[in-house]
Amino acid sequence: MRTDFAFIGVMLVTAFLLMGVAVFAASLLRPKKPSPAKLETYECGMETVGDAWVQFRVQYYIFALIFVLFDVGGVLLFPFAVAFNVVPIYAVLVVILFLGTLMMALLYAWRKGALQWD
């Protein structure tokens, strides 16, 4: 188990270094002739207007928050799924209750129109 995680660590470092080497090698090979026009922000050929300061809609945030809450809910189910074969039968009821509560949350979001993208 420990050497397994050590391998994951080694893999992380190796992959990062390999990708870094690729970018570095490309930076040696490629031409580099910057000009002010080249370095401008791309805006379909138009003159760039202002900063990238766009006002975002709150809908993005609402979808993210629904996702976050379901994500943590899902994480809690994993230990139970592993232990499924050794738990008594009433444990299934507990999990159904858990999932039912999550569904109520989803239903609330649905009824409030939070799942509607427009």
Binding site: Y61, L65, V68, L69, V72, G73, V75, L76
Partner: peptide, 13 residues
């Protein structure tokens, strides 16, 4: 973990 997620969701909202 759950508390942190709930706190972040409500606080940031």
């Amino acid at each position: 973990f759950v508390v942190a997620a709930a706190e972040a969701a409500i606080g940031l909202a």
